[in-house]
Design a protein around this nucleic acid. Sequence first.
DNA 1: CGCATCCAGATTGCATACAATATCTGGGCG
DNA 2: CGCCCAGATATTGTATGCAATCTGGATGCG
Lengths: 233, 233
Amino acid sequence: MDGPDKSAYDALPGYLPGGTSRGRTTEAVTDALREAILDGVMPPNAWLREDELAHAFKVSRTPVREALRRLADEGLAVKTTNHGTVVAPLSLEDILALYVVREDLEGLAARLAAVRCPPGLVDQLDEIGERMKQATKAADVPQLARLNLEWHRALREGAANVYLGRFLGQVEHAVRRLPSSTLSHPGRADEVVCEHGAVVRAIEARDGDEAERQARAHMRRAREIRVAVLLGT
Amino acid sequence: MDGPDKSAYDALPGYLPGGTSRGRTTEAVTDALREAILDGVMPPNAWLREDELAHAFKVSRTPVREALRRLADEGLAVKTTNHGTVVAPLSLEDILALYVVREDLEGLAARLAAVRCPPGLVDQLDEIGERMKQATKAADVPQLARLNLEWHRALREGAANVYLGRFLGQVEHAVRRLPSSTLSHPGRADEVVCEHGAVVRAIEARDGDEAERQARAHMRRAREIRVAVLLGT
DNA sequence: CGCATCCAGATTGCATACAATATCTGGGCG
DNA sequence: CGCCCAGATATTGTATGCAATCTGGATGCG
């Protein structure tokens, strides 16, 4: 058996937002499916049947179909002509490749953000950092993961580069597929807050080189932890 | 008037490959439309009407619709709900942003290619370089542009990183939208061949740092020429 | 004369029907 | 006993129909 439990489909409707107005059905289905994949509800190699998904979401095959195509373009699913779509598997090699690119792009984002240093960005990042400290104390890992995403999103928006933003968005989706958060690793949460702080200070000083260096170091460390976790803590 | 000449639609069928088998209609339409946009046949802000395109391509609206969604996801088109799709405009700001990211990614690709240095890559790049020299002598700009694309594609394949490859592919599409090639700029073709050579030599020496440096310099220079051309030679 | 409102047309969004194709199963043959 | 081929089945690919929604202009009112 290489598919998910049948009941996995039952969990899907819960990912759909309540009042979905016309013209956003496809978008809603895309997001719902993506979240389901990222959450691991639909594990790698699980079949994504247009008919079953349409039935589960109570929509027709058309929006489901378009959603599957988008997810395939994003690399989260793999389409086989005339046969079906599966959730894309994630090899260790892929994960390493991901972090290599991510180190580069996050470094660039930090550099650009430092050079531009748009008003409010430093405060915004610091505020998220503060909330992350609180979440660390409370050992609230899901909240930490959310805030971490928010921090990185704020950083790349501060970089104000549409292409960089798009690529980092795709990287974020790929990263979120990785099993469990590295933030649950003992002591990692404190480290992350600290490393984020180093980046923010460099941005505040408008030191592009230093910001890039710190952001890259942050990502290298993240990769190390990730590999450690994957290879059995 | 902000649309293309009506006859622009007449040119579209020529972009469709001849024997398109079932299961690849959408793909064929996507590629055809993309090429038409990149060639400037469909200029920025031109309307992309599902009905007209379907009629021009002699297919139904469904594959056209999916093609438009993909192009929109790639950033080549902009969809407005319930109203229509237009070819995305390209501001100078976007172009600069593009080259910033491209410098980073091409640099990374060169570094990875140098470190891996897969067998055959250097020969392949050199051979393309040789053909570019010939095309330069013949002043065959379209051929030069093709070979240039081929060279960069070979480089990123040599880097063997799926995410990097995907992102550079998107960058390539965006770059190809820019009006006219920088390769027609006087003396630029020779420079490009020379700069490519510097990258290849660094790869041959397996010097990742140098390869990245040379690739980034190459992209910076490309950006300079591009800006010069855009601002009136 | 300006502005809000309403109506008509155009266009996409979604649903459904049909056609084509790949996979799988079972039987026959070497 | 294994291999190959044919038919059945499951699944997607494409076409088309209808409904919702947005735009633009005409119209009536202040």
